[in-house]
């Protein structure tokens, strides 16, 4: 517990961060920036786990461990996504959504 800081304040920060990430995901065109927006969303969720763990259920380190696993999974995701992006770049020399939209709707 951080003296003087209530749970709801932390949750507000994490929620705002999550939705900033959503905004980025929706408006960005560059694949790498979309990926970065995803990271913001994931971190928002991670803060939630930690805050709940610390403030409400300190008996077990559950939330903390979940955040740890989350970080590992996020690393996997980014690594794979970047491999694909670089492969894509080798094909078309661009990483923007528009240029990556040859599949017709």
């Amino acid at each position: 517990m951080i003296p003087g800081v209530s749970l709801i304040e932390i949750l507000t920060v994490s929620t705002l961060m999550f939705f900033i990430g959503v905004y980025g995901f929706l408006t960005r065109k560059n694949l790498i920036t979309i990926l970065m927006s995803l990271e913001l969303m994931l971190n928002g969720a991670a803060i939630n786990f930690v805050a709940f763990n610390k403030y409400l259920y300190p008996g077990q380190p559950n939330g903390q461990l979940f955040a740890l696993f989350l970080i590992a999974v996020a690393a996997c995701e980014v690594a794979l996504a970047i491999a694909i992006v670089i492969n894509l770049y080798r094909k078309i020399k661009a990483v923007d959504v528009e240029q990556v939209n040859t599949l017709k709707h």
């Binding site: 990271e39 970080i71 690393a75 670089i86």
Partner: peptide
């Protein structure tokens, strides 16, 4: 992992592609 690894990976890919 995050700040040291993932972000470095991202910057790396940016430098490679842009």
């Amino acid at each position: 992992v995050y700040a040291g690894g993932i972000v470095v990976l991202i910057i790396f890919s940016i430098l490679l592609t842009h």
